[in-house]
C-alpha cells in the first residue's frame, strides 16, 4: 500500500522553456538508469530478500525513487509547458512531439521505450544488492552528465543536484545492506548456497556439512 503526498520531495519551480534540455532529462524517467527502473527493481527484489534490514532498505528506497521520477516528470513538464511550435521544431523535440505532444511518457533520451529488461530481480540477495550498488552509480553518472548540459539553467541544476546526492546516499545504504547479508553467510564461501532459495540448508552458518562440495 502507498499513500500520495501532494508535494515534491524537493521543490521545483522552473520558469524557462527548454525542450532540448527536457529531451535529455527525460532519460531519468524511462531510460536504462532512470528512476522508474530503479523503483521497479528495488520493489521487485524485496519479496525474496531474507533479511529484515535489507527488505526495509529496498522498500523505502524503492518508494523514494517514485518521488524521484515525479521530480523528473515535473522538470520535463515545466521545461515544455509553454513551448511554441517554432521552439519545438528548432530544438529537435518534434520527434517526441509527433507521438506524445507534450505528454509525459517513459523513454530514454535516445527514444528507446522504458523496459524491464534494464534491470534484474535474480532472487539471490548478493547478486541483487550488487546490481543495486551499480544502479546507484550509473544513475549518479547520468546526473553528472545532465549537470554538464544544464549549466545555464540554475533552477534545473538545483533539482538535479539534489537527485544526484540521493544516489550517493542510496549507494551507502545498499552497501550496508550487502554487508549485513554477508554477515549472515559463511565467510569462507558466500556462494555455498542461496539464502533466499536453499532454505532446506541450515542458514549458511557453516555447519551444513557440504564444504567439500564447494562450487
Amino acid at each position: 500500500m502507498w499513500n500520495y503526498e501532494k508535494r515534491l520531495e524537493y521543490p521545483i519551480h522552473i520558469k524557462e522553456t527548454n525542450p532540448k534540455l527536457a529531451q535529455a532529462i527525460i532519460t531519468q524517467y524511462g531510460g536504462p538508469d532512470g528512476e522508474l527502473g530503479a523503483s521497479m527493481r528495488y520493489l521487485s527484489q524485496r519479496y525474496t530478500m531474507p533479511y529484515r534490514e535489507a527488505i526495509a532498505t529496498l522498500t523505502d528506497i524503492g518508494t523514494e525513487e517514485l518521488a524521484h521520477f515525479e521530480m523528473i516528470c515535473t522538470i520535463v513538464y515545466q521545461l515544455t509547458r509553454n513551448m511554441s511550435m517554432e521552439e519545438l521544431k528548432a530544438s529537435g523535440f518534434d520527434v517526441y512531439y509527433v507521438d506524445h505532444t507534450a505528454g509525459l511518457w517513459p523513454q530514454a533520451a535516445s527514444g528507446v521505450p522504458f523496459s524491464a529488461a534494464t534491470f534484474q530481480s535474480t532472487g539471490d540477495p548478493v547478486a541483487d544488492l550488487t546490481e543495486d550498488l551499480a544502479a546507484e552509480q550509473k544513475a549518479r553518472i547520468t546526473y553528472d552528465n545532465i549537470l554538464r548540459l544544464c549549466e545555464d539553467s540554475p533552477e534545473v541544476k538545483d533539482a538535479i543536484r539534489f537527485l544526484r546526492e540521493r544516489e550517493i546516499v542510496h549507494f551507502q545504504r545498499f552497501g550496508e545492506s550487502l554487508r549485513i547479508v554477508q554477515d549472515h553467510l559463511d565467510s569462507r564461501n558466500f556462494y555455498i548456497m542461496n539464502p533466499a532459495f536453499d532454505t532446506g540448508i541450515s542458514g549458511g552458518s557453516g555447519d551444513c556439512g557440504c564444504k567439500s562440495n564447494t562450487p
Binding site: R7, E9, P11, E53, T57, D60, V169, R173, E176
Partner: peptide, 22 residues
Amino acid sequence: LQWINMVSFACTETVLYLNTHP
C-alpha cells in the same frame, strides 16, 4: 510547505539510516 519539505526529508533520511542501524 518548505518547512514540511525539510522535516519530511529529515524523516526520509533517518528512516534509511535506521533500516541498517536499528
